[in-house]
C-alpha cells in the first residue's frame, strides 16, 4: 500500500466532516474518492496534505506518518491540486509555477527546468508570461493541475480536476494520470463526473456524511452494485406471472422496463435459482441478462440503499 488512511475523524464545531474514515491506495493505482457535496472529500484531502489537523486517526505514506511532527517532510512526496480555481492572480503563469517548485524545496536551476517541462507538457507556452488574472477558467485549472503533476511525486491528489476543463483536456489529464500510475505513483481523484471518473480509476471509496459506504475495486462495486446484489434483466412470455414469481421470491427493486423485467438478485449464484423458479412456474424465459452496473449505478444504489 502506498497511502493508508486509518480511522480518520474531523469535526468543525458540531459538524462531523469525517467520521472514522479508512481506505488505502495501492502503489501504481488511481483511486477515486466520491460522495455528495459536504460528504467530507475535501476535508479528507486537506487532512492528508496538512491543511487541516484531524481530531484523530492516522495517515501513512509508504509507512511513514503524515500527521504529527516530521509529517511535513513526508508531505514533500505529495503533489496537490485543490478544488478551487482561485489562484494568486497577480503572478504570471511562469512565476507561479517557479514559486511552487521553489516551495517544494528545489534549487533555482531545477525549478526553472521544471517550469519549462510544465509549460511544454501542459501547452502553456502562449500564456506563460501572462498574469493569471487574465486566464480563462479552464486555463487556470490547467495551471493548477500542472503545478501538482509536474514534479515527480509518490502520490498525486487532485480535488475535482476535470471541472472546468474542455473535453480535449479531460482526455489529456486522464492520459497523464494513467502514465503517472504506470510509473508507480499513486493518484487520488475526486469528481462528481462519475462516468468520466470511471474511465480512469482502478479503485474507489464512496463516502457520505464522512463515513465510507464502500471502499475497494471498481469491479467489485459494479458487479455487485455496491454490495447490494446483481442486476438482472429477463425477457419472458408472461410478464404478469413472472412479476409475481419474482416478487414472491423476495427479490428487490423488481420493475418492468419495456419488454423486460429488471430485478436485483443477492449474488451471481442467485441468478440460476431465479431462472429455475420462473421455469418451474411455467414461465417461458426467452433471455436473461446480467446488467453491468456503472460506477454511477453503484454510487446511486449505495447512497439510496444505505
Amino acid at each position: 500500500m502506498s497511502l493508508v488512511v486509518k480511522n480518520l475523524s474531523k469535526t468543525y464545531g458540531s459538524i462531523v466532516a469525517v467520521n472514522n474514515l479508512s481506505f488505502s491506495v495501492d502503489e501504481g493505482s488511481i483511486h477515486g474518492l466520491v460522495g455528495p457535496n459536504g460528504s467530507g472529500k475535501t476535508t479528507t484531502f486537506k487532512s492528508i496534505v496538512g491543511l487541516t489537523i484531524p481530531d484523530s486517526g492516522e495517515i501513512l505514506l509508504d509507512n511513514e506518518p503524515l500527521l504529527g511532527r516530521g509529517g511535513y517532510r513526508v508531505r514533500g512526496k505529495i503533489g496537490f491540486s485543490p478544488e478551487t480555481i482561485e489562484l494568486p492572480l497577480w503572478l504570471t503563469v511562469r512565476d507561479f509555477l517557479y514559486l511552487m517548485a521553489r516551495l517544494d524545496g528545489l534549487v533555482k536551476r531545477d525549478s526553472e527546468q521544471l517550469v519549462e517541462n510544465a509549460i511544454k507538457e501542459f501547452r502553456l507556452g502562449e500564456f506563460a508570461d501572462t498574469r493569471i488574472s487574465r486566464l480563462s477558467k479552464g486555463q487556470k485549472k490547467r495551471v493548477l493541475i500542472a503545478q501538482a503533476l509536474i514534479p515527480e511525486k509518490r502520490v498525486y491528489i487532485l480535488d475535482e480536476p476535470m471541472t472546468g476543463l474542455d473535453p480535449e483536456w479531460v482526455v489529456r489529464i486522464r492520459e497523464i494520470l494513467r502514465s503517472k500510475a504506470n510509473r508507480g505513483s499513486s493518484v487520488i481523484v475526486s469528481s462528481h463526473l462519475l462516468r468520466e471518473l470511471e474511465t480512469v480509476i482502478d479503485s474507489v471509496t464512496i463516502i457520505k456524511y464522512g463515513v465510507a459506504l464502500f471502499t475497494g475495486k471498481v469491479d467489485d462495486l459494479t458487479s455487485t452494485i455496491g454490495g447490494l446484489g446483481v442486476k438482472i434483466s429477463v425477457e419472458v412470455d408472461n410478464k404478469e406471472k413472472a412479476l409475481r414469481v419474482l416478487l414472491d421470491s423476495g427479490l428487490r427493486r423488481v420493475e418492468v422496463k419495456g419488454d423486460s423485467i429488471e430485478a436485483i438478485v443477492d449474488s451471481k449464484e442467485g441468478v440460476d435459482r431465479v431462472v429455475r423458479k420462473l421455469v418451474e412456474a411455467g414461465v417461458r424465459v426467452y433471455r436473461v441478462n446480467t446488467v453491468t452496473a456503472t460506477l454511477e449505478d453503484g454510487y446511486m444504489r449505495l447512497l439510496r440503499g444505505k
Binding site: 496534505v49 496538512g50 508531505r75 478551487t84 489562484l87 492572480l89 511552487m100
Partner: peptide, 13 residues
C-alpha cells in the same frame, strides 16, 4: 487568493 492552500501543502512547517 487561496495561495495559502498551495503553500501549506508543500513540505514546510
Amino acid at each position: 487568493d487561496n495561495g495559502i492552500q498551495l503553500i501549506l501543502a508543500k513540505p514546510l512547517t
